[in-house]
Computed example of a mutant assay.
Amino acid sequence: MAEDLCISNGGKEEKYRMLLPQIKCLIEGEDDLIANLANIAAALKETFHFFWVGFYLVKGEELVLAPFQGPVACTRIKKGRGVCGKAWERAEILVVPDVDAFPGHIACSSLSRSEIVLPLLCAKGEVWGVLDVDSENLNSFDEVDARFLQELCSYL
């Protein structure tokens, strides 16, 4: 497969509907996790122009920065700290319309205004990482993002 994306000019839901099968095809047959995470981060950034999109992987009692697209980021996050650490601790999707209103938010960049974090779950239900997406705008993420990004995470 050529590594070019067909990106819809439509709304958010239409973009996800067009992107997800392409991502599935892109990572299908590739067993290198880092390569797949890198391509997913790039595809999401290219399609939606998010401020920051990337992954953190569980290593002991911390999340450690993995492939991402955007400005430099926090390298390590403790369980329960910030949006990523809370999503890991709770094993649930967190949609944060205003990061300044989130107790304990970790500001890797002062330009980030809203965020969605999805836990990556293994078959046993344990969290092995998170997908973190940030926007420069308030209220950027909703149930549409949560639904489609959760489906995307299931591919991993």
Rank of each mutant, 00 (worst) to 15 (best):
A2M: 13
A2W: 11
E3K: 15
L5S: 10
C6F: 13
C6E: 12
C6V: 15
I7G: 02
I7A: 02
S8L: 00
S8V: 03
S8Q: 03
S8N: 09
G11D: 15
E13P: 03
E13N: 00
E13C: 01
E14R: 03
E14N: 10
E14I: 04
K15E: 03
K15A: 05
M18S: 11
L19F: 02
L19T: 03
L20S: 01
L20M: 12
P21G: 01
P21R: 03
C25Y: 14
C25L: 15
L26I: 00
E28V: 05
E28C: 10
G29V: 08
G29T: 06
G29N: 05
E30L: 14
D31I: 01
L33P: 12
A35W: 15
A35S: 15
N36S: 10
L37K: 02
A38C: 14
N39L: 14
A41P: 04
A42K: 15
A42N: 03
L44D: 05
K45A: 15
K45D: 13
F48G: 00
F48S: 06
F48W: 02
F48Y: 04
H49T: 04
F50Y: 03
F50I: 11
W52G: 00
G54H: 07
K59L: 04
K59F: 07
G60Y: 06
E61Q: 01
L65G: 01
L65H: 08
L65W: 06
A66P: 03
A66G: 06
P67Q: 13
P67L: 14
P67A: 12
P67K: 15
Q69G: 04
P71H: 03
V72R: 15
A73N: 14
I77M: 03
I77K: 00
G80T: 02
G80L: 09
G80R: 07
R81T: 05
G82V: 11
G82K: 10
K86C: 08
K86F: 05
K86N: 06
A87D: 13
A87N: 13
A87M: 13
A87Q: 14
A87E: 11
W88C: 12
E89I: 10
A91V: 04
A91C: 14
E92F: 12
V95H: 11
V95S: 11
V95G: 10
V96W: 09
P97F: 04
P97L: 03
D98I: 07
D100F: 08
D100W: 04
D100M: 01
P103Y: 09
G104L: 01
H105E: 02
H105L: 10
I106A: 07
C108M: 05
S110Q: 02
S112I: 07
S112K: 05
R113P: 09
E115S: 00
E115Q: 01
I116R: 15
L118E: 12
L118R: 03
P119W: 11
P119A: 08
L120R: 05
A123R: 10
A123C: 11
K124R: 13
K124E: 12
G125H: 02
E126A: 05
V127D: 11
W128P: 00
W128H: 10
V130K: 11
V130N: 14
D132E: 07
N137S: 06
N137Q: 10
L138V: 06
D142N: 07
D142A: 06
D142W: 11
E143F: 11
D145K: 07
A146C: 14
A146D: 12
A146M: 14
R147Q: 07
R147S: 14
L152T: 12
